[in-house]
């Protein structure tokens, strides 16, 4: 049981970021900025928890910070039709620089913030964990059972057709990206509040692993969350094996998600296909 909870704790932030990536990409916007959004969420949560002393406000601030950064991505890609990969990379550079900058200004440190209050010990009912499961289920339901989900998928698959039915492509995509920012921001808040502080670069590539989980989950919310849990399992298994004297070099475990993703896109186990209009800017004046 404790092992299971440990796995889920490791997997949770990946999972939220993977859900975030799924929403954005289902609407047709590639979001490599997940890494930066996690970082922004973590810093937002830390700052709010530090200033107000209330970790719950930290959670909200993390979500807000994530949404703010995703707005920049949406503004550049939807309004100005900047290449989505370029824009997300710029967002990642920006988040990394801005977070270090703020860390230095507020906490006068290049490595970590002051200690902040976490959400406390809830035993197996860790609020983040509960939230993660609820959110994963709600996401799946939203995508496949609501009008919003149908429209989001429509603008990601065939924006022209969606528009001819009166759906605003840009507005739907904006909502997808914004939701993405909120979810990954929450993931960032989880990271920071669990460790009771913000450390420089604490997203540690989780945003990219989340991207891998999106692909392995074949662009479905439950699939993405499941893939993230699997990655969490691999990571904790390594810790456990080490305790029993079996040592697999850390680096090989680190490679696992990436190698699996390569296998997935190579088509080793069936076809993994992104939404048809994923990554393609849209403007209604186009032919």
């Amino acid at each position: 049981m404790t092992f299971l909870i440990q796995v889920l704790r490791i997997a949770g932030p990946y999972g939220l970021a993977a859900l975030a990536g799924t929403f954005s990409e289902l609407g047709g916007v590639v979001n490599i900025a997940l890494e930066g959004i996690l970082l922004a969420g973590a810093l937002g949560a830390t700052l709010a928890a530090y200033w107000t002393g209330n970790p719950w406000l930290g959670v909200l601030a993390g979500i807000g910070a994530g949404m703010l950064l995703s707005c920049l991505h949406a503004w550049a890609t939807l309004r100005h039709r900047v290449d989505q990969i370029v824009s997300s990379l710029a967002c990642n550079f920006l988040a990394a620089g801005l977070c270090r900058f703020i860390l230095k200004l507020v906490f006068h440190s290049t490595s970590n913030s002051a200690r902040v209050e976490g959400l406390g010990d809830w035993g197996p009912f860790d609020p983040f964990l509960v939230l993660f499961f609820v959110i994963a289920a709600v996401c799946h339901w939203t995508v496949y059972r609501t009008r919003f989900g149908l429209r989001l998928r429509a603008v990601g698959e065939h924006p022209k057709a969606a528009e001819s039915l009166g759906i605003s492509v840009l507005a739907m995509r904006f909502k997808g990206v914004l939701l993405s920012g909120a979810l990954a921001g929450l993931g960032g808040a989880w990271l920071a509040l669990e460790q009771h502080q913000f450390t420089d670069g604490m997203s540690g590539g989780r945003g990219y692993i989340a991207l891998a989980a999106v692909i392995l989950g074949r662009w479905t919310p439950l699939g993405a969350a499941g893939a993230a849990i699997f990655f969490g399992l691999a990571e904790s298994l390594q810790i456990i094996l080490q305790a029993y004297g079996v040592s697999i070099p850390t680096q090989f475990v680190q490679m696992l998600p990436y190698l699996m993703t390569l296998a997935a896109v190579a088509g080793v186990a069936g076809k993994s296909r992104p939404p048809a209009a994923d990554g393609i800017p849209y403007s209604s004046e186009q032919d």
Partner: peptide, 16 residues
């Protein structure tokens, strides 16, 4: 870090 931020800004300015 101010200059890291400027680098990111440069990318966005130029591509837009």
């Amino acid at each position: 870090e101010m200059f890291d931020i400027l680098q990111a800004a440069a990318i966005l300015i130029v591509v837009i």
